[in-house]
């Protein structure tokens, strides 16, 4: 079954890098992109998104604020928060929102754990 993943990052380059890692790890998944929190939420209302990979430091609402909004509307969506900002508070807030922390710069290796976990959970849900 094909799943849909939404990449949210204000950097186009970062979206391309995440996209490349996704092509390598989950080539079948449909990839969508958004450049900010508002566009991401708007896209989620028209497309059935299973997985969101969200940058933390973005203009407008940051990745944690977006994750909070996503949780309200889509309680079971699988969310990763991508950042080089490894402060305890940020990691704790990501955990509290049931979002997985993924280190930036994004690499295939860094994304692998989150994606295989996500694939497994999506399979169990059927």
């Amino acid at each position: 079954m094909t799943h849909t993943v939404l990449i949210v990052d204000d950097s186009k380059l970062a979206r391309i890098v995440v996209g490349k890692a996704l092509v390598a790890l989950q080539p079948e998944w449909k990839r969508l992109e958004a450049g900010n929190a508002d566009d991401a939420l708007a896209l989620m209302t028209v497309e059935a998104v299973d997985v969101a990979i969200v940058d933390f430091n973005m203009p407008g609402r940051n990745g944690l604020e977006l994750a909070e909004d996503i949780r309200k509307q889509f309680p079971t969506m699988l969310i990763a928060l991508a950042t080089a900002n490894v402060q305890d508070e940020i990691i704790a807030q990501a955990r509290a929102l049931n979002a997985t922390f993924v280190p930036k710069p994004i690499t295939e290796e860094g994304l692998k754990g989150f994606l295989s976990g996500a694939a497994l959970k999506l399979r169990q849900r059927g």
């Binding site: 950097s11 186009k12 380059l13 970062a14 933390f56 430091n57 950042t83 080089a84 900002n85 490894v86 402060q87 305890d88 508070e89 940020i90 930036k104 710069p105």
Partner: peptide, 26 residues
């Protein structure tokens, strides 16, 4: 875009170090 992202990653890591020095979120 690439330079902004490089700076963002550099500063984010530096902020994490500063957080450890001051014990509060940066």
């Amino acid at each position: 875009d690439a330079l902004t992202e490089l700076v963002n990653i550099g500063v984010s890591r530096a902020a994490a170090s500063l957080r450890n020095m001051v014990g509060e979120q940066v």
